[in-house]
Simulated scan of single mutants.
Amino acid sequence: MATLLEEANGHPWESVRSALAGAEGQPHPRIAALASHLTATKRAYWTLISAAAAHAEAIPVPHPPDDAGLTRLMEWEVAAARALPESALGLMVTHSGQTVTVSDLLRLNARHTAWHAGQIAALARRERSA
């Protein structure tokens, strides 16, 4: 799971980090909104994971740092995913009214990240008109 998140977050070719790097000059305003959205959703996913681990008395999973922007949060979450014990992957969480495993939520996180990386990359290529 950690590798999947690491690739969606920071792979040199197809990731949020590479898409943001392609936004030169005055980027499209939607890019900032997507980055903010990703930051909020990643923080929400990891807050659910941390609460589930605490409830199950599994190895403690720290809450995501409140003061981290998207880049630092992506680095934090890869380290947190690497530190998750295998037993934590089967814990149940409720997200958007559906009960899923932590493993399911981490895969959703990676898909969600890749989806928005593509949107950011498309917007980064658009020329801005004055």
Rank of each mutant, 00 (worst) to 15 (best):
A8F: 09
N9K: 07
G10P: 00
G10Y: 04
P12T: 08
P12R: 10
P12Q: 10
E14V: 15
S15R: 01
R17C: 09
S18T: 01
S18P: 00
S18V: 02
L20G: 05
A23V: 03
E24A: 13
G25E: 05
Q26M: 14
P27F: 03
H28Q: 06
P29E: 10
I31D: 04
I31R: 02
L34G: 05
A35T: 15
A35M: 14
S36Q: 13
T41M: 12
T41G: 12
Y45I: 12
T47C: 11
L48C: 08
I49Y: 00
A51H: 15
A53P: 00
E57K: 14
E57L: 13
A58D: 13
I59G: 11
I59Q: 12
V61N: 00
P62E: 08
H63C: 14
P64R: 07
P65T: 10
D66P: 12
D67Y: 11
G69V: 12
L70M: 04
T71S: 11
T71A: 15
T71E: 11
R72C: 15
R72E: 15
M74H: 05
M74N: 01
M74Q: 08
W76P: 02
W76K: 07
W76A: 13
E77T: 10
V78R: 00
V78G: 03
A79D: 08
A79I: 09
A79G: 04
A81N: 04
A81T: 01
R82D: 05
L84N: 00
S87K: 06
S87G: 10
G90L: 09
L91E: 02
T94S: 13
H95M: 08
S96C: 11
Q98R: 12
Q98N: 11
T99R: 14
V100F: 11
V100G: 00
V102C: 03
S103T: 07
L105K: 00
L105E: 02
L105A: 03
L106F: 03
R107H: 13
R107D: 13
N109R: 06
A110M: 01
T113G: 01
T113K: 04
A117F: 07
G118E: 02
G118L: 06
Q119H: 07
A122F: 11
L123N: 01
L123Q: 04
A124T: 02
R125I: 13
R126W: 08
R126V: 06
E127K: 08
R128M: 10
S129T: 12
